[in-house]
Protein backbone atom coordinates (compact mmCIF):
# COMPACT_ATOMS: atom_id res chain seq x y z
CA UNK A 1 0.00 0.00 0.00
CA UNK A 2 1.31 3.41 -1.00
CA UNK A 3 0.58 6.59 0.93
CA UNK A 4 0.62 9.99 -0.69
CA UNK A 5 2.57 12.40 1.44
CA UNK A 6 3.24 15.26 -0.87
CA UNK A 7 1.92 16.45 -4.18
CA UNK A 8 2.95 19.19 -6.56
CA UNK A 9 1.43 20.26 -9.82
CA UNK A 10 3.90 20.28 -12.68
CA UNK A 11 1.63 21.08 -15.61
CA UNK A 12 -1.99 22.04 -16.01
CA UNK A 13 -4.29 21.54 -18.96
CA UNK A 14 -3.20 24.74 -20.67
CA UNK A 15 0.50 23.97 -20.36
CA UNK A 16 -0.07 20.48 -21.71
CA UNK A 17 -1.89 21.87 -24.72
CA UNK A 18 0.89 24.35 -25.30
CA UNK A 19 3.49 21.59 -25.12
CA UNK A 20 1.62 19.68 -27.79
CA UNK A 21 1.26 22.78 -29.99
CA UNK A 22 4.97 23.37 -29.62
CA UNK A 23 6.01 19.87 -30.58
CA UNK A 24 3.80 20.04 -33.67
CA UNK A 25 5.65 23.10 -34.86
CA UNK A 26 9.03 21.57 -34.07
CA UNK A 27 8.18 18.33 -35.80
CA UNK A 28 7.09 20.19 -38.91
CA UNK A 29 10.31 22.19 -38.91
CA UNK A 30 12.75 19.41 -38.07
CA UNK A 31 11.17 16.25 -39.47
CA UNK A 32 8.79 17.53 -42.13
CA UNK A 33 5.28 16.22 -42.52
CA UNK A 34 5.74 14.03 -45.58
CA UNK A 35 6.23 10.34 -44.81
CA UNK A 36 5.67 11.08 -41.14
CA UNK A 37 4.00 8.53 -38.88
CA UNK A 38 3.28 8.74 -35.16
CA UNK A 39 3.62 5.82 -32.78
CA UNK A 40 2.51 6.12 -29.17
CA UNK A 41 3.68 3.81 -26.40
CA UNK A 42 0.91 2.28 -24.32
CA UNK A 43 -0.37 3.42 -21.96
CA UNK A 44 -0.70 7.20 -21.98
CA UNK A 45 1.86 7.68 -24.77
CA UNK A 46 -0.86 6.47 -27.13
CA UNK A 47 -3.28 9.14 -26.00
CA UNK A 48 -0.67 11.88 -26.19
CA UNK A 49 0.21 10.63 -29.69
CA UNK A 50 -3.45 10.95 -30.63
CA UNK A 51 -3.51 14.52 -29.38
CA UNK A 52 -0.42 15.35 -31.46
CA UNK A 53 -2.03 13.84 -34.53
CA UNK A 54 -5.19 15.86 -34.02
CA UNK A 55 -3.18 19.01 -33.51
CA UNK A 56 -1.18 18.43 -36.71
CA UNK A 57 -4.40 17.78 -38.59
CA UNK A 58 -5.96 21.00 -37.33
CA UNK A 59 -2.90 23.14 -37.86
CA UNK A 60 -1.63 21.85 -41.18
CA UNK A 61 -4.58 19.92 -42.66
CA UNK A 62 -2.59 16.71 -42.88
CA UNK A 63 -3.62 13.15 -42.16
CA UNK A 64 -0.78 11.43 -40.31
CA UNK A 65 -0.97 7.64 -39.71
CA UNK A 66 -1.11 6.77 -36.05
CA UNK A 67 -0.09 3.51 -34.38
CA UNK A 68 0.26 2.15 -30.87
CA UNK A 69 2.94 -0.03 -29.34
CA UNK A 70 2.70 -2.34 -26.39
CA UNK A 71 6.26 -2.99 -25.27
CA UNK A 72 5.51 -5.60 -22.59
CA UNK A 73 7.06 -8.41 -24.58
CA UNK A 74 10.22 -6.40 -25.17
CA UNK A 75 10.92 -5.52 -21.56
CA UNK A 76 14.21 -6.55 -19.99
CA UNK A 77 12.85 -7.37 -16.54
CA UNK A 78 10.88 -10.55 -17.31
CA UNK A 79 13.25 -12.68 -15.19
CA UNK A 80 12.92 -10.21 -12.34
CA UNK A 81 9.21 -9.46 -12.21
CA UNK A 82 7.71 -12.28 -14.27
CA UNK A 83 4.80 -12.14 -16.67
CA UNK A 84 3.17 -8.77 -16.87
CA UNK A 85 -0.42 -8.80 -15.71
CA UNK A 86 -1.84 -7.11 -18.77
CA UNK A 87 -0.59 -7.21 -22.29
CA UNK A 88 -2.44 -5.20 -24.86
CA UNK A 89 -2.11 -5.32 -28.58
CA UNK A 90 0.42 -3.58 -30.73
CA UNK A 91 -1.57 -1.71 -33.33
CA UNK A 92 0.59 -0.44 -36.13
CA UNK A 93 -1.53 -1.09 -39.18
CA UNK A 94 0.75 0.56 -41.71
CA UNK A 95 4.14 -0.21 -43.15
CA UNK A 96 6.86 1.76 -41.40
CA UNK A 97 9.63 0.98 -43.90
CA UNK A 98 11.34 4.24 -44.97
CA UNK A 99 8.94 6.29 -42.87
CA UNK A 100 9.85 8.98 -40.39
CA UNK A 101 8.61 7.84 -37.01
CA UNK A 102 7.72 10.19 -34.19
CA UNK A 103 7.76 8.01 -31.10
CA UNK A 104 5.65 9.37 -28.24
CA UNK A 105 5.66 8.58 -24.53
CA UNK A 106 4.46 10.37 -21.43
CA UNK A 107 7.50 10.27 -19.13
CA UNK A 108 11.17 9.62 -19.89
CA UNK A 109 12.91 8.17 -16.86
CA UNK A 110 15.40 5.26 -17.00
CA UNK A 111 15.19 4.99 -20.78
CA UNK A 112 14.36 1.30 -20.65
CA UNK A 113 10.88 1.68 -22.10
CA UNK A 114 12.31 3.53 -25.08
CA UNK A 115 14.98 0.87 -25.55
CA UNK A 116 12.21 -1.74 -25.65
CA UNK A 117 10.12 0.39 -28.01
CA UNK A 118 13.03 0.79 -30.42
CA UNK A 119 13.44 -2.99 -30.51
CA UNK A 120 9.73 -3.39 -31.17
CA UNK A 121 9.90 -0.83 -34.00
CA UNK A 122 12.84 -2.57 -35.60
CA UNK A 123 10.79 -5.79 -35.62
CA UNK A 124 7.99 -4.00 -37.47
CA UNK A 125 10.18 -2.60 -40.24
CA UNK A 126 13.01 -0.24 -41.07
CA UNK A 127 12.04 3.39 -40.68
CA UNK A 128 14.34 6.01 -42.19
CA UNK A 129 14.26 8.06 -39.02
CA UNK A 130 12.99 7.75 -35.45
CA UNK A 131 12.59 10.76 -33.18
CA UNK A 132 11.30 10.80 -29.63
CA UNK A 133 8.84 13.13 -27.95
CA UNK A 134 8.12 12.91 -24.25
CA UNK A 135 5.81 15.14 -22.29
CA UNK A 136 8.06 15.06 -19.23
CA UNK A 137 11.78 14.32 -19.01
CA UNK A 138 12.47 13.58 -15.36
CA UNK A 139 16.16 12.62 -15.52
CA UNK A 140 17.88 9.60 -13.89
CA UNK A 141 18.66 7.81 -17.17
CA UNK A 142 20.09 4.29 -16.96
CA UNK A 143 20.72 3.96 -20.69
CA UNK A 144 22.23 6.34 -23.23
CA UNK A 145 18.88 7.58 -24.54
CA UNK A 146 17.61 11.11 -24.91
CA UNK A 147 14.48 12.77 -26.24
CA UNK A 148 14.49 15.00 -29.32
CA UNK A 149 11.40 16.92 -28.31
CA UNK A 150 10.49 17.54 -24.68
CA UNK A 151 7.36 19.11 -23.22
CA UNK A 152 8.98 19.92 -19.90
CA UNK A 153 12.28 18.93 -18.38
CA UNK A 154 12.44 18.64 -14.63
CA UNK A 155 14.67 16.97 -12.05
CA UNK A 156 12.54 14.61 -10.02
CA UNK A 157 13.92 12.68 -7.09
CA UNK A 158 13.88 8.90 -7.16
CA UNK A 159 11.35 8.56 -4.36
CA UNK A 160 9.00 10.86 -6.22
CA UNK A 161 6.75 9.85 -9.06
CA UNK A 162 5.56 11.77 -12.05
CA UNK A 163 1.90 11.16 -12.69
CA UNK A 164 0.58 12.17 -16.04
CA UNK A 165 -3.18 12.35 -15.90
CA UNK A 166 -5.22 12.51 -19.07
CA UNK A 167 -8.85 13.30 -19.54
CA UNK A 168 -9.40 10.10 -21.51
CA UNK A 169 -8.17 7.80 -18.73
CA UNK A 170 -8.18 9.85 -15.54
CA UNK A 171 -10.87 12.44 -16.16
CA UNK A 172 -8.50 15.40 -15.95
CA UNK A 173 -5.52 16.81 -17.88
CA UNK A 174 -2.64 17.50 -15.51
CA UNK A 175 0.84 16.39 -14.48
CA UNK A 176 1.72 15.89 -10.84
CA UNK A 177 4.85 15.13 -8.89
CA UNK A 178 3.90 12.84 -6.08
CA UNK A 179 6.06 11.84 -3.17
CA UNK A 180 5.00 8.45 -1.94
CA UNK A 181 5.96 6.25 0.92
CA UNK A 182 5.34 2.59 1.53
Amino acid sequence: MWYYIHMKKLMDKKEMEEAIEKVCEEVKKEMGLSNLVIIGIKRRGDIIAKKIRECLEKKYKVDIPLGFLDITLYRDDFSKIGANPVISETDVLFNIDDKKVLLVDDVLYTGRTIRAALDAIVDLGRPSLVRLFVLIDRGHRELPISADFVGKKVEVKKNEMVEVKLKETDGVDEVLIVEKEK
Binding site: D70, Y74, F78, E89, D119, A120, D123, L124, G125
Partner: peptide, 17 residues
Amino acid sequence: KSFKGVSTRSVKKVPAL
Protein backbone atom coordinates in the same frame (compact mmCIF):
# COMPACT_ATOMS: atom_id res chain seq x y z
CA LYS B 1 -5.32 -12.25 -28.19
CA SER B 2 -2.36 -9.94 -27.91
CA PHE B 3 -0.02 -12.70 -29.03
CA LYS B 4 -1.95 -13.41 -32.20
CA GLY B 5 -0.60 -10.31 -33.91
CA VAL B 6 2.98 -11.45 -33.51
CA SER B 7 2.48 -14.29 -35.99
CA THR B 8 1.14 -11.99 -38.69
CA ARG B 9 4.15 -9.70 -38.79
CA SER B 10 7.16 -10.01 -41.05
CA VAL B 11 9.36 -10.57 -37.99
CA LYS B 12 7.40 -13.28 -36.19
CA LYS B 13 9.25 -13.03 -32.94
CA VAL B 14 9.24 -11.11 -29.69
CA PRO B 15 12.03 -11.31 -27.11
CA ALA B 16 9.81 -12.04 -24.09
CA LEU B 17 11.26 -15.47 -23.21
